[in-house]
Amino acid sequence: MTIISLCAQIVFILTGSPLVVGLMSWIKNRIEGRRSADVLQPWRETRKLFSKQVLYPQTAGGFFRFAPLALFASTLSASAMIPLVSIELPFSSTFDLFWVVGFFLLGSVFLALGALDSGTVFGGMGASREMMIVALLEPSILMSVYALSIRAHSSNIFAIVRATILHPGQIASPASALSFAALVIVVIAESGRLPVDNPNTHLELTMIHEAMTLEYSGYPLALIKWASAIRLVLLLGLISNLFLPEGLFDSTNLVLLGVSVLITGAKVTLLASILALAEVHMAKLRLFRVPELLGGSFVLGLLSVTASLYLPPILK
């Protein structure tokens, strides 16, 4: 049964992630007063890219070719380690949050190495900026993990979610609010959304993630785009289930599984819509203002840790 939940989760993420990206741009477009393409547009693009020719620059080496596969595979692996549709998956007792966060990092590192391997200017530029953000984001991530692990006495994701289901009152604490705020910043930075990175820009001065992909074409490009969509959905799903695990069930029967899928889908949709609404009102931060934002997230995480160690939750 855990295998079935895993398959359901993977299918859910693979098919759903381009839709979420489509939904976000639909919402943004509608608010800007546009007619807008429908939510299926990212899917059309993915399908098209998979049928296109692949061009490899002469200067690139083997890493350039391998990087998109590694990025996609590590993101896919991470999606098999997060409680999105069930609180029990194969090996779920071994999915430590520190470990799973490492899979996101693994993807970023491979993409950066691939970009450096392209032997072009933009590849290096994107890699350098991306690695700066990764480096500065790491403290915020680990601090949020620390803050979350305190209430469950464990840093296992599934244990944290279970603990929240068992003691829902613990969520209503200042510590949770602070760690939620810290995690929101982490999620935004990690998924490359505004105000940290603008996924729609191609200007030298501003682009981070896009700069690394400029030399890619065909299915490797599709894999990269798809992987960042998956990453977005994973992070949104993770944050919603960490703080609001209602609707997650043990893998016992297919009906419950279906209900879980629907509820998680709804949660992710809701969060994505909120994120899109917020993005309309935002401009991208200057690259060198981003560390301030990440530093803010770190401090929030630190406060959350101190609060959860020394302040009791409001509701027992």
């Binding site: 007063g33 807008s36 059309r44 191609h202």
Partner: peptide, 21 residues
């Protein structure tokens, strides 16, 4: 522009010819 919104027909511009059709 919002009035014509070419992107709503699945047509967009890109900076890199590698990404383009």
């Amino acid at each position: 522009s919002p009035t014509y919104d070419l992107e709503s027909y699945g047509i967009s511009l890109t900076a890199s010819p590698r990404h383009s059709d």
